[in-house]
């Protein structure tokens, strides 16, 4: 079985966002780059499927600039077999452009399972996975909180406002991973050594024309300073008064 995992390199979630000089992008100076947290669940599930199937190939694919091989090396250390870096110098391509580039690469791979994170924690779009599925004409289940594979059919559950949807879908399929899908493993020392010998192919990303134009990136207005109404249970009447009369939320 062939599986593809699409991963994005993102700023660490501790990052304090600064706006770049162009007023439109995020200033990457001094940022620590990590694998998108949701993609860790996608990678882990692909590894588990390979273990369950007793073999198969896992290909990691990522679109981005010169730093992306570090993220791919991480996925290789976790156990992916090979990686493809779709190279571009475009800063933050829009989701449809990314999806086009990924679909062009994945289309030829004959994958049974194509994995994504639910969303990237920098742009928070939650688009690329289902877009790739559409471009490839594959069925797709998003925001999988559980995953089971049996007889060529996948069953996932997804949280919705009224409960959980139980979704069934035949292979080949695109899945996007929600937090809690599994508990991602850490790369072992052996895995890190092995990763050094695995290949990362590099090709230009075929992004096509942009579908979105970023006009500005702004910091949200600061919340007006609040106040400590008091210490301990004695402060409760004062709080209730403020909530009722000032904030008018009671």
């Amino acid at each position: 079985m062939i599986q593809v995992v699409c991963v994005k390199q993102v700023p660490d979630t501790e990052t304090r966002v600064k706006v770049a000089a162009d007023g439109r992008n995020f200033d990457p100076a001094g940022v620590t780059w990590v694998l998108n947290p949701y993609d860790e669940y996608a990678v882990e599930q692909a590894l588990r499927v390979r273990e369950q199937q007793g073999g198969g190939e896992i290909v990691a694919v990522s679109v981005g600039g010169a730093s992306v091989p570090t993220a791919l090396r991480e996925v290789l250390a976790l156990g992916a077999d090979r990686a493809v870096h779709l190279r571009t110098d475009v800063v933050a391509p829009d989701p449809l452009a990314l999806a086009r580039a990924l679909a062009a690469e994945i289309g030829g791979l004959k994958a049974d399972l194509v994995w994504f994170g639910k969303q990237a924690v920098d742009d928070d779009q939650a688009q690329v996975g289902p877009m790739v599925a559409e471009l490839l004409g594959l069925p797709c289940a998003t925001v999988a909180a559980t995953f089971a594979l049996a007889d060529g059919r996948v069953t996932v559950e997804r949280e919705v406002e009224v409960g959980r949807e139980v979704v069934e879908v035949p292979l080949p399929v695109v899945i996007t991973a929600e937090k809690g899908l599994n508990e991602p493993r850490y790369a072992s020392l052996k895995g890190r050594m092995a990763a050094k010998k695995k290949t990362i192919e590099e090709r230009p990303a075929e992004l096509g024309a942009p579908a979105l134009e970023v006009v500005a990136l702004e910091l949200p207005p600061a919340r007006p300073a609040g106040r400590i109404v008091g210490q301990g249970a004695a402060a409760v009447p004062e709080l209730v008064k403020a909530l009722r009369d000032e904030a008018q939320v009671l």
Binding site: P11, T13, T15, R16, V17, V19, F26, V121, D122, D123, D124, V214, A216, L217, E218, L219, P220
Partner: peptide, 8 residues
């Protein structure tokens, strides 16, 4: 974006 740390 960035979970509300900035507005695009």
């Amino acid at each position: 974006v960035f979970a509300g740390k900035a507005i695009q």
